[in-house]
Amino acid sequence: MTGPDSTTASGIGFVVTASGVSKAFGRRRICTDISFVLRRGDRLAVVGPNGSGKTTFLKILCGLLRPDRGTITYHFHGTTVPRNHWHALVGLVAPDLALYDELTALENIRFLNDVGGWGKTGGQLRSLLGDVGLAGREHDLLSTFSSGMKQRLKYAAVLVKAPPLLLLDEPTANFDDSGAAIFHEVIQRQRAAGICILATNNKQEAELAERHIVMGE
């Protein structure tokens, strides 16, 4: 799989810190007092049964939700990154996240490239689509894609940004064997590029990480 050189460079000096993070929805507790420090090359698996709050925790990590107590902090070369700049550093692949059905595959990732200002050329974007097995389908509307192909496009979309923090929620959902191979290649590359956090029920996927958080205990 080809990828941008900036991927590797961007994760150097990037640290994510969780300090006493707790979240509840009413009386339902999602997580309590979670703390960790993650650096480039670290992999963390968030495991737990359905409804245990794995997705919510990922949303807290990427700044879409605020914790009730505790803090998440992004540091870049020792400087704290303001929350309104986190979007440039984090990529998320999740069932709760969709791309635009009314655009083609190439238009989708070109839009994400342009609106984020990532400066990829048309050739690089086509190459990304080829990397996730969508060569030849660049000009097809997303509404004609199967769920597995949409999942592949989500990986291409996140690779446009080459984020130092990659969050994967149910990373192989809807994937066939070749799709699962894409997932393995992406997280292998992410070890050099930055931090990877997986939220999964799958034991084999969870074993790819060295550190684990168990939700719903």
Binding site: C62, L64, N84, H85, H87, V90, G91, L92, A94, D96, L97, A98, L99, Y100, D101, L112, V115, G116, G117, A157
Partner: peptide, 16 residues
Amino acid sequence: ETKTAVTLQLATSEDV
């Protein structure tokens, strides 16, 4: 409604 809001939230800044 189409769950693309999350994509947009993580794609660019609020003022854009």
